[in-house]
Simulated scan of single mutants.
Amino acid sequence: MAVAIRSIPTLQGEDAERFLKEAEYAEKNERKQDFGDKILLVRKFLREQGF
């Protein structure tokens, strides 16, 4: 017996337009932050603490 597939909610109207606008802005933003070095520092700290 097949299980019914749940419908996936989608954005429509103004919400969809606002989402796309914000996504495009974030993609083009030149002030992106690189957290790579901070992530490595936290991993090192957690490793030292036994996590």
Rank of each mutant, 00 (worst) to 15 (best):
F35M: 03
R47H: 06
R31I: 10
L46S: 03
M1P: 13
A4W: 11
E24D: 15
A16I: 07
R43I: 08
L20V: 06
K32L: 08
L20W: 04
L11I: 06
L41F: 11
K21H: 12
A26Y: 09
F35R: 01
D34E: 03
K32A: 12
T10R: 03
E14Q: 10
A2K: 13
G50E: 02
G13L: 03
T10V: 15
V3T: 13
L40W: 05
K38Y: 14
K21D: 06
E22G: 04
R31P: 02
I8H: 06
P9R: 08
L40G: 13
K21S: 14
G13E: 01
A26K: 07
E24L: 12
F19A: 12
A4M: 10
E24K: 09
G13I: 02
D37R: 13
F51G: 05
E14C: 05
R43C: 15
L11T: 06
F45I: 04
I5A: 14
N29L: 09
M1S: 13
Q12H: 15
K44N: 07
R43D: 14
S7W: 07
K21Q: 09
I8R: 04
E24F: 08
V3H: 13
Q49A: 00
R6G: 14
R31T: 09
Q49F: 02
Q33V: 15
K32W: 01
E14R: 10
T10H: 05
P9M: 03
P9S: 10
A4L: 11
G13V: 03
V42H: 05
A16T: 04
F35K: 01
E27C: 10
N29H: 10
S7P: 08
L11F: 09
K28N: 15
Q49Y: 04
L41A: 15
R18P: 02
D34K: 02
D34G: 02
G13D: 00
K32Q: 07
I8L: 07
L41H: 06
A23L: 13
V42W: 06
K32S: 11
A26F: 07
A4G: 11
I39V: 14
V3L: 15
G13M: 00
A23M: 12
R18C: 11
E14P: 01
K38V: 13
T10D: 00
I39D: 00
S7T: 08
E24A: 12
I8W: 02
L40F: 12
E22R: 06
A23R: 07
K32H: 01
R6F: 12
E48N: 09
F35Q: 04
S7V: 09
K44M: 10
E30R: 10
I5P: 08
I39M: 02
L11E: 02
E27N: 11
